[in-house]
């Protein structure tokens, strides 16, 4: 029952594991931002290939992430369909030309190469960061999360709340299970035999005691933290923080170069879009 939090961290003994959490977080955030901004297809494909290569080196087992990846693909496809439904001419507006594939320009629902190309760019933007996010989550020791967040400038109180949440997820899950069993024993039918609405109502019955027991937990934990001087100084150190090594600087440098290329392309393209239709 351990390691059920998030999608499991495991020390896979790769160079990615040895990078400090802050480096991985910075790289992930940096690449995500530049990827979200640009619509340069060549660049996006480049970053995508780069992240897939890195992903290959991370030795993450595809089986462990299959579910997450499927969920993301599902949502992306749904999103792309919705973009088409609500704005089927947006590609034409952006690129200024119209190459019809299906239907006529008088119809609301027609299909243009520009729209397809625009949605292809969207798909790339949704997916290129996924391998990077998975690498960050699965190669960073959860104990290092808080330290990494703090290092990139987020206040240590907020950073520590991430660590506390990770610490208490299994306990709250346990509480939920216990409370649910106790309610079932009173006669709330929660098994698959009961109709859906009954089960929903049953879950709400569990919520009240769960909230109360969680509030109790929060009170005790905040006292325990104060008693050990949490919040005394403007800063705190982290036992699990990793010092930057030469590999960290190297990784940051690589990512910086990639980002600079992206920014350079804004200049070359005269904007965020690369227009192959001109």
């Amino acid at each position: 029952m351990q390691n059920q939090l998030l999608i499991g961290y495991d020390n896979r003994h790769t160079f990615l594991n040895r990078l400090s959490g802050s480096t991985k977080l910075l790289c992930f955030v940096g690449l995500s931002i530049i990827g979200m901004m640009t619509y340069d297809t060549r660049y996006l494909i480049g970053v995508m290939v780069f992240s897939l290569i890195i992903f290959h080196f991370s030795k993450i087992n595809y089986r462990d992430i299959k579910f997450v990846v499927n969920v993301i693909i599902g949502f992306s496809v749904l999103n792309l369909v919705m973009v088409y439904v609500f704005a089927p001419h947006y590609g034409v507006t952006i690129y200024g030309t119209e190459h019809l594939l299906l239907g006529s320009s008088q119809h609301y629902f027609n299909l243009t190469t520009e729209q397809l190309f625009y949605e292809f760019n969207l798909l790339l933007k949704y997916t290129f960061a996924v391998p990077l996010a998975l690498i960050f989550l699965m190669t960073t020791n959860p104990s290092e999360f808080a330290a990494s967040l703090n290092k990139i400038g987020i206040s240590y109180r907020i950073s520590y709340s991430v660590a506390i949440a990770l610490r208490y997820i299994p306990d709250v899950q346990n509480d939920y299970r216990t409370i649910s069993l106790a309610q079932q024993a009173r006669g709330f039918e929660m098994s698959k035999k009961a109709p859906f609405m009954t089960r929903v109502r049953g879950s709400i019955q569990i919520l009240l005691p769960l909230i109360f027991s969680s509030l109790d937990r929060i009170e005790v934990i905040s006292q325990a933290m104060e008693l050990r001087r949490f919040g005394k100084g403007k800063k705190r150190t982290w036992y699990m923080a990793q010092k930057f090594k030469s590999n960290d600087y190297l990784a940051l440098l690589c990512v910086l170069v990639i980002i600079l290329i992206g920014i350079g392309l804004f200049k070359v393209n005269g904007g965020r879009f690369w227009n192959p239709f001109n």
């Binding site: 050990r228 005394k232 150190t237 982290w238 036992y239």
Partner: peptide, 12 residues
């Protein structure tokens, strides 16, 4: 174990 030392900003 190290929690209070972290809050005292001790070195690793």
């Amino acid at each position: 174990m190290a929690f209070s030392l972290e809050n005292d900003q001790q070195t690793q």
